[in-house]
Each structure stands twice: as structure tokens, then as C-alpha cells.
């Protein structure tokens, strides 16, 4: 609602424009660009997924990588068992939904810092389980996934479109939640959970629904990732860095709306590209600096800045200068 800069249609127009470019990209861009675009869609899906529980419900979840990794493993194992690739992906999404529905009612009793710590523990536990049950998961040796036939260009296109479809589904789901009963109830929970409960919001059911939605999109993205790179291991998919990066992206753009997470992903990835290419060694340090800046200066994210006023000041400053110049002459 307040997350729109210039009315509802501007945001939607930009999103549709970007989607059109992404669809055309395999035909006009090189492999590097297609790969970058696939990552853009991957992180958009994760960020929009996190936003349901972290943004709308206000529960600082660090369980993103748990769902992502679980999705990757379920998808990979299903594919290795002979399930067609798209069905394996759907199976992974379903598996993550069930996992989150089972975990949610217990984990979501925790609040604030306790929930954050509890959710990050899930990632570690999942990583250890994947390492321990080596007969089943391959353990630290990792797990190979059948490579998609048809050559790198064709595979690049398939995985880009698949990730784009998940990101688009996450975006459309967000729009529906934002306008519906669920989004309103989650926002009430985020503001004051006890008051929401007293007003008739079934808080446990709503929080679990947000957690399940979050898990589905992270799980789908993880499963597609596993098929894309054709090899996964526990430290790669149950990654603490990933679990931290996604909330940072959302907070950078602005949590609790449909557009903030997308702005955050684009801004973060643009920054990451610049930093990777300029200071390879300092990459992780820069992530830390961004977190600090977010906490101190941007509590509402980039979208919550008063852009019209900021731009207006620049314009006014420019006008004043040119007027002064004109007067001097």
C-alpha cells in the first residue's frame, strides 16, 4: 500500500517489463546473462517467500535455507528415483509445505530473538541430517542429479523459465495475500499479536499459513536449483550465508509488500556484481556493512524512503543554482 512510489500501476508496469525482458533474454543475451537472470529469479522467489513470514507476519525467520535445502534434496532424490523433472519439483514443494506445517505450530510459539535462533537451528539440524544419512543423501560426498539433455543453451533457457515461473507465482500469491484476509490478519499479528488474537484472528493458523507459503516457494526454488547445477551437497544448499542474505535483501527493499523484496533483490545483486568484480576479498565484509547500514539508516527499506521529497530537493537545489547563476550573470 504505502510501498508504491508512484501509484499502483507503475510498479506493475515495471515488473511486467522486466518479465518480458527475461523471457526474451535466452534469444538476445549470452550464457552469462542468462545465468545471472536465473539467479535473479531464484533470489526473487526466495525473497518473496521469506516476505510472507518475515515481512507480513513479522517473524524474523532464518529457516529459508532449511526449506531451500530440503527442496533441493527431495527434488534430487525424486529425480534419481525416476520421477520426471517437473513432477520432482512439485513433489519438493509439497514436501516443504508438509514439513513447514508440521514444524510451524511448535516453532512459531517462539517470538523475536528466540524465534530467530530457533529457525537458524533448523538449518543446522537439516545440514547435519543430510550429512549423517549418507546412504540416502550421499552425505558429504554430495548428490548427483541427472543432467538435462539438449545442450547448455537449451538447459539455460529451461531453468531460467522455471525459476521465472516460481518467482512469478510467488509474486502473484503475494498480491493475492496482500489484498485478502490472510495479509490483513498477518499484518495485525505483526503489529500486536495478542490484540490480533483478541480481535478474532486465529493467530496460530495464520502464522503457520505464512510459514507454509514461505516454505513452498523456497522449496520449489531449491529443487530447480538442484536440477540446474546437477550436483548438491549439504554445505551448498543448507547454507547459513543464503539464510542471512535473503532477509537482508528484503529489508534492503522494504518488507511487507509485493514490491519491496523485488527492489531489494535487484539492488543487492547489482551491488554484489559490482563488489565481486572490484573487491573479491571484501565480499563478505560488505554484506556485514550493509546489514549495519540497514539497521541504522533504513528501517523501512529503500521503498519507504520519501523519494518524491528527495528527488524534489535535488531538483529544487538545481533550480536554485541555475537561478543564482542567471542572477550573477
Amino acid at each position: 500500500m504505502s510501498a508504491f512510489i508512484g501509484g499502483k500501476n507503475l510498479g506493475l508496469t515495471i515488473v511486467l517489463g522486466v518479465v518480458a525482458v527475461l523471457i526474451a533474454l535466452p534469444f538476445i543475451g549470452d550464457n552469462y546473462l542468462v545465468r545471472l537472470a536465473t539467479f535473479l529469479c531464484l533470489f526473487s522467489a526466495l525473497a518473496l517467500g521469506w516476505n510472507f513470514i518475515g515481512g507480513y507476519a513479522g517473524y524474523p525467520s532464518f529457516a529459508t535455507a532449511a526449506f531451500y535445502g530440503l527442496g533441493a534434496y527431495v527434488g534430487a532424490l525424486l529425480q534419481n528415483a525416476g520421477t520426471p523433472m517437473p513432477l520432482a519439483w512439485l513433489g519438493a514443494g509439497l514436501g516443504c509445505a508438509i514439513f513447514a506445517a508440521a514444524l510451524g505450530p511448535t516453532l512459531l510459539r517462539l517470538k523475536g530473538h528466540y524465534f530467530a535462533v530457533g529457525s537458524i537451528a533448523i538449518v543446522e539440524i537439516m545440514r547435519l541430517l543430510a550429512s549423517i544419512f549418507a546412504d540416502f543423501t550421499g552425505g558429504g560426498m554430495g548428490l548427483n542429479v541427472p543432467i538435462l539433455r539438449g545442450g547448455p543453451d537449451f538447459a539455460g533457457m529451461v531453468f531460467l523459465y522455471a525459476m521465472l515461473a516460481v518467482a512469478a507465482a510467488a509474486f502473484l500469491t503475494t498480491l493475492a495475500v496482500d489484498r485478502g484476509r490472510l495479509g490483513f490478519g498477518l499484518r495485525c499479528i505483526q503489529q500486536n499479536e495478542d490484540a490480533a488474537n483478541m480481535l478474532g484472528v486465529d493467530v496460530n493458523a495464520y502464522k503457520t499459513a505464512a510459514f507454509v507459503l514461505s516454505a513452498i516457494f523456497c522449496g520449489l526454488a531449491g529443487a530447480i536449483y538442484a536440477s540446474w547445477v546437477a550436483y548438491i551437497d549439504p554445505t551448498d544448499v543448507f547454507s547459513i550465508l543464503l539464510t542471512l542474505k535473503v532477509p537482508v535483501m528484503v529489508l534492503l527493499g522494504g518488507a511487507g509488500g509485493a514490491y519491496g523484496p523485488l527492489v531489494g533483490v535487484v539492488a543487492f545483486m547489482a551491488m554484489e556484481e559490482l563488489i565481486w568484480s572490484n573487491f573479491l576479498e571484501l565480499h563478505h565484509g560488505v554484506l556485514g556493512v550493509i546489514i549495519v547500514i540497514l539497521v541504522f539508516f533504513l528501517p523501512g527499506g529503500l521503498l519507504k524512503l520519501r523519494w518524491p521529497q528527495i528527488l524534489g530537493r535535488f531538483r529544487a537545489g538545481g533550480d536554485a543554482k541555475s537561478e543564482a547563476k542567471a542572477a550573477a550573470e
Binding site: 490484540a195 480481535l199 478474532g200
Partner: peptide
Amino acid sequence: VQPFPSMTVRENVAAGALFAG
């Protein structure tokens, strides 16, 4: 008193109407 602080006054009351009313 227990309002939802950053929602509007109207949204605060609408929550009651929607979820219990």
C-alpha cells in the same frame, strides 16, 4: 489500550469487523 500502531484508525476497527464481526 492495544492498538495496531502503524495501521490507520479505520484499519484498526476494520480488523475487528473482518475477523470477529
